[in-house]
Design a protein around this nucleic acid. Structure first.
Length: 969
RNA sequence: GCUCAGAUGGUGGAACUGGUAGACACGCAGGACUUAAAAUCCUGUUCCCGUUAAAGGAGUGCGGGUUCGAUUCCCGCUCUGAGUACCA
């Protein structure tokens, strides 16, 4: 029979499901291998051809590893909490769990059709209570932990309490809030329960604090920094404003250094690691206290100094002014009566500027003088204090020591306001701009004069420490992560409030189930939707009304797959110790600073509390490129003549001609050429007829376009308005315009995998997606060429069949040429898969099948091995042929990968390309036993070579054995 | 601005450590089969010049360099894409 992909694929998909062919065991003599995909959010639109790209790659790898004798864990699940389902619920009143359920069903159907070897017995859904019970449980562990800097790990909060009870707050080196109390053991023990809890909250790894958040009024919720783009929400594009709110936060900053160091130990794409490094933003420098001048209004101030962070403490003798952020807490008290008007005006001005303006406008210099001065701690100079919006309140201490000679922004500021610019390096060139050089020797710098950068920095820090006015300091750009959303469709926080303070619910009460509510909107008093729940109250207080953010459930899900149905633990100790970590993780780079950072954070925490064994969760990570859409256009020309509209659809070339025709005469001429009856009014201005011509480019559904040629019949049926469309064609065809854009419904460029599977089958789709190009590269989807892959599979099928499509394989011994073709592909595919170069192995399969077809090879010995190596790519057709070859069903997935034998590839002759001065001229065959001198002698006298030499004597002959001969003339 | 990735035929792409540039596939052209079309098969296909066949010449974004030899290494530039942004 001809290749009947539909029957074959259905049959084997059912077989795999019925027999649990891909169920992984949590113990095995085989080495383990964990292949993970980023699980999808089940959106209502279903999968388009871009989604499965990474899944196909990981599936090929997982299947390949099985053949290579590994116990492979390859699971799939759904990140099923999230905003879109809730937005839909608000619009329709339908419960988000219902839409989520429907969407998951669609995803599952689509995934099943592609023939993935997922172990579905381990499926997880972040929105199921059995799953989020453990997300809540991890939250509780975070709440019950603090970060001990001395031990450099998280420790139980009970240990901290014990320390307070016996030693008070001294001797504690913690990552915590800034305003912590100092107390003795007695003082602690005398504190009320409430004061103690309030103090402990400052240490907990998840804690409440008033923070400035990205508030999106339209979505009614707080967004994480990575969910905001240029002042607008990433989802929906609604405006986002800064707002102060009491919020749950995660003390991810405690792990900043470990998150940074861990990057050096994992095999991730360099750009991705770079993104995380930038996000963490470590800078090494010093903090320096500048005492406030006594003439200022010290009496009103809480402190008597301004602290700055600097990465160039060596330039401290070049400081000629100080700049603090307009929001800095000291601004009001520093402002002298004479300067008050200036300062107030400036603050009003900055408040008016939106976040966006402030970012865009980096060129204009602005600021205002407070009237106060600080003292340079090292030379006693009086330094004026200014405010300016180029200093950000949120970074460092919100204050900078300005060194105009070395920092460009300070330089511009100094020039603009006529402040001194002090030279501090002998070689500094600062006529037109600041010179931040670290070369040269210091000048005008007291005790570091004449020193170099390294010694000077050390000397300055030593001096500052001696004075108690500064110390070396490491600063991170990364902020603690906000962990609360004022939304319904998320994990409830397992916390209730008593006297305004948070307490965990009892572990036995987990999961804290998401209650039913009447509608999915904030309450009238502005509380989150959970405020609508009735009968949802803890005996001792009110439950937390915000829910967890989208990244909560995805920050640990790979552990749940290890032991998905455990109700005693998030995964058993045995399962975790067996699977350890993810060996290969494939997903998009858009998760660089969100999911992938949070996951590493939670993983490190879980390691600290002894629940998991590896410091890093994902050993190797690959980013698959984005599949963009390829839109097609039709060009409509509307001619209005006295109110009557006539529409013509112009093929691409005709449209271009039309665009070039400017005058009515030219347009008339084109219409005459095209044989159309339309009379453009004469150029006589006295004619009153109103004529109007206008063109529109319309997106046309790419599924009714083939190779940019429009299927006119389908187009007419597509929409009512096209029913009577008139076409102006190019050589009988309507050619569409093309553009690369995002794949989206509104652009009619979505290609659905279901349609392609219907036409060509899953095996063709799998191979074609790989054939498209390197996995990591982004590219527009183009279905042109899928035929080639389909033809390949038919050709492969045909190897096993005679001219009448009867199954026919021979048991005779393979020839040398056949073995060579086989072993070439065995080696090639092995090398390609190991380096994730799937596109090149598809080509190699084509070459192998072409070669075997030419050899008319139908030898069982060859085809048997070929079926095994193709199985990861095209599993259905291979299973079918495997059984036809007489093997037991289901054994193919666990067959042994054929062993490469180099002996079959040994040649005794090589056709040397002979080039003259590096230009290839001809090929000459020599035995591979000949050494370089023998070849050179042969070359010098070879008739073919002499022909090219024109009687000239070769200066030099370079012979690279088995590679090339180059003659230099 | 900074960081990173990339640029190869009409198209997607290949060339793995510097060694025959354009594998494989699409498209296109020509041919076979067919009453015809589809499907299938065969041949050709980087460009220029030329042709019976040949023989030349140019050529991997641009300009230089290293080398017997560069798509590959080095320097400078242009363009495209991604991330990030007054980070002290």
């Amino acid at each position: 029979m001809d290749y009947q992909f539909k029957d074959i694929e259905k049959k084997w998909q059912k077989f795999w499901a019925d027999n649990n062919t891909f169920a992984a065991k949590n113990n095995s003599d085989k080495p383990k291998y964990y292949v993970l995909d980023m699980f999808p959010y089940p959106s209502g639109a279903g999968l388009h051809v871009g989604h499965p790209l990474g899944y196909i790659a990981s599936d090929i790898f997982a299947r390949y590893k099985r053949l290579k004798g590994f116990n492979v864990l390859h699971p799939m699940g759904y990140d099923s909490f999230g905003l879109p389902a809730e937005q839909y619920a608000i619009q329709t009143g339908q419960h988000p769990s219902v839409t989520t359920e429907d969407n998951i069903a669609t995803y599952r159907r689509q995934l099943d059709q592609i023939g993935f070897s997922f172990d579905w017995s381990r499926e997880v859904r972040t929105s199921s209570a059995g799953y989020y019970k453990w997300t809540q449980w991890i939250f509780m562990q975070l709440f019950n932990s603090w970060y001990n800097k001395d031990a450099d790990k998280a420790e139980p909060i009970a240990d901290l309490v014990a320390h307070f009870e016996t030693n008070g707050s001294s001797g504690i080196n913690a990552v915590c809030d800034e305003e912590i109390l100092s107390f003795t053991a007695d003082e602690w023990n005398a504190m009320s329960e409430q004061s103690q809890q309030a103090e402990l909250l400052k240490y907990r790894l998840t804690y409440l604090r008033e923070s400035t958040v990205n508030w999106c009024a339209a979505l009614g919720t707080v967004l994480a920094n990575d969910e905001v783009k240029d002042g607008f929400s990433e989802r929906g594009g609604y405006p986002v404003e800064q707002k102060k709110m009491m919020q749950w936060s995660m003390r991810i900053t405690a792990y900043a250094q470990r998150l940074l160091e861990g990057l050096d130990k994992i095999d991730w794409p360099e750009p991705l690691k770079e993104m995380q490094r930038n996000w963490i933003g470590k800078s090494v420098g010093a903090s320096v206290k500048f005492p406030l001048d006594e003439t200022t209004h010290l009496s009103q101030l809480a402190t008597n100094y301004i602290e700055v962070f600097t990465t160039r403490v060596d330039t401290i003798f070049g400081v000629s002014f100080m700049v603090i952020a307009p929001e800095h807490e000291l601004v009001a008290s520093l402002t002298t009566p004479e300067q008050k008007a200036d300062i107030d005006a400036y603050i009003t001005l900055t408040k008016k500027k939106s976040e966006l303006d402030r970012m865009a406008d980096t060129k204009t210099v602005s600021g205002a003088f407070t009237g106060s001065y600080v003292t340079n701690p090292l030379n006693g100079e009086q330094i004026p204090v200014w405010i300016a919006d180029y200093v950000l309140a949120g970074y460092g201490t919100g204050a900078v020591m300005a060194v105009p000679s070395g920092d460009q922004r300070d330089y511009l500021f100094a020039k603009h306001f006529n402040l001194p610019i002090i030279r501090i390096m002998d070689i500094q060139q600062m006529d037109t701009e600041a010179d931040p050089t670290k070369e040269g020797k210091y000048v005008n710098s007291a005790f570091i004069n004449g020193l170099g950068y390294k010694e000077a920095t050390a000397a300055v820090i030593a001096k500052l420490e001696e004075l108690g006015l500064g110390k070396a300091k490491v600063n991170f750009r990364m902020r603690d992560a906000i962990f609360g959303r004022q939304r319904y469709w998320g994990e409830p926080v397992p916390v209730y409030f008593k006297n305004g303070l948070p307490y965990l619910i009892d572990e036995s009460e987990l999961p804290l189930v998401l209650p039913e509510i009447d509608k999915y909107l904030p309450t009238e008093s502005g509380e989150p939707p959970l405020g609508r729940a009735t009968d949802w109250k803890h005996p001792e207080g009110e439950y937390e009304l915000s829910t967890m953010p989208g990244w909560a459930g995805s920050s640990w899900y790979w552990y749940r797959y290890m032991d998905a149905n455990n109700d005693q633990d998030f995964a058993s100790k045995e399962a975790i110790e067996y699977w350890k970590d993810v060996d290969l993780y494939i997903g998009g780079s858009e998760h660089a600073t969100g999911h992938l950072l949070y996951s590493r954070f939670w993983n490190k925490f879980l390691k600290d509390i002894g629940k998991v064994v590896e410091e890093e969760p994902f050993k190797k990570l690959i980013n698959q490129g984005m599949i963009q859409g390829r839109s097609n256009f039709v060009y409509r020309l509307n001619l209005v003549d006295d109110g009557n509209v006539r529409s013509y659809y112009l093929s691409k070339n005709k449209y271009q001609e039309w665009k070039k025709a400017i005058s009515k005469a030219e347009q008339q001429q084109l219409f005459n050429e095209w044989g159309l009856q339309f009379h453009f009014s004469s150029l006589d201005p006295l004619v009153v007829t109103q004529q109007l011509a206008y063109e529109t480019e319309l997106h046309v559904d790419v599924n009714i376009v083939d190779n940019d040629i429009l299927d006119i019949a389908k187009f007419k049926k597509w929409r009512q308005e096209f029913m009577d469309a008139e076409f102006i064609l190019d050589e009988g065809k309507y050619i569409c315009g093309v553009e690369v854009e995002k794949m989206s419904k509104s652009k009619f460029n979505v290609v659905n995998p279901d349609d392609l599977i219907e036409r060509y089958g899953a095996d063709t789709l799998r191979m074609y997606e790989m054939f498209l190009g390197p996995l990591e590269q982004s590219k527009p989807w183009n279905t042109n060429g899928i035929e080639g892959v389909f033809k390949f599979l038919r050709k492969f099928w045909r190897l096993f069949h005679d001219a009448e499509w009867n199954f026919s394989v021979s048991n005779s011994e393979p020839t040398k040429a056949e073995l060579k073709a086989l072993h070439k592909i065995i080696r090639k595919v092995e090398e390609d898969v190991e380096r994730f170069s799937f596109n090149t192995s598809v080509s190699s399969f084509m070459i192998a099948v072409n070669e075997l077809t030419d050899l008319k090879c139908n030898k069982r010995a060859i085809l048997h091995d070929l079926v095994i190596i193709l199985e990861p790519y095209a599993p259905h057709i291979c299973e079918e042929l495997w059984v036809l070859l007489g093997n037991e069903p289901s054994t193919l997935s666990y067959a042994a990968y054929p062993k490469f034998n180099p002996a079959y590839l040994v040649e005794d002759e090589f056709s040397y390309p002979v080039s003259i001065n590096g230009k290839m001229k001809t090929n000459i065959s020599f035995s591979l036993t000949m050494d370089n001198t023998e070849i050179e002698t042969a070359i010098r006298s070879h008739a073919d070579v002499l022909k090219y030499l024109d009687g000239k004597e070769p200066k030099k002959v370079i012979v690279v054995k088995g590679r090339i001969v180059n003659i230099v003339v």
